[in-house]
């Protein structure tokens, strides 16, 4: 009887551990990149120059960009901004990670920023009305 009870308890424990592991795997939050070091760092001008000739090895990489904020768009639960120049359409778009919106409460257009994020897309089309664009997601301040 004791032996059976022992096996039963072991089986229950194994099932419970497996259930917790599966739950954790399924509900794992998206990666927090704020504590990670960017693979590459660019000024806005350097990045725009680079993508004109070479967009390889950029997608899905964590990069840092510094430049002037040209536009901030805020709503109830999100902040996104553009880094660029008033003289060209090309820009870097940054979707701020919801976990770090508070850090950026005092940003304003026209001021410099050093930000990092995952490259979700690079669009090079100088003929398009949108200009060239590097889109970053999960952005946070690049603290050195």
């Amino acid at each position: 009887m004791n032996q059976k009870l022992k096996y039963l308890l072991i089986a229950v424990a194994v099932i419970l551990i497996a259930a917790v592991l599966v739950w954790k795997f399924v509900n794992k939050p998206t990666t927090d990149y704020a504590g990670q070091k960017p693979e590459m760092s660019y000024s806005f001008a350097e990045l725009m120059k680079k993508i004109e000739t070479d967009t390889s090895n950029m997608k899905d990489k964590l990069i840092a960009v510094n430049g002037n904020i040209t536009k901030i768009t805020k709503d109830s639960n999100s902040v996104r901004l553009e880094i660029g120049s008033d003289t060209i359409m090309s820009s870097v778009t940054c979707d701020i990670d919801a976990r770090y919106i508070k850090e950026l409460a005092n940003i304003s257009e026209g001021t410099p920023i050093d930000i990092k994020g995952i490259v979700s897309e690079v669009t090079v089309d100088p003929e398009s009305s949108f200009g060239n664009t590097v889109a970053l997601i999960y952005c946070s301040l690049n603290k050195k």
Binding site: F25, V26, N27, K28, P29, T30, T31, K59, D60, D95, S120, E121, T123, S129, F130, A135, I137, Y138
Partner: peptide, 25 residues
Amino acid sequence: SLLDIKNGRLEFIVQIKSFVFDRQL
């Protein structure tokens, strides 16, 4: 997104990888 208010031309470009979810999976 682009809108030309003179002729009504409207365009949207959506980069699929820029969709963000609360869970990695």
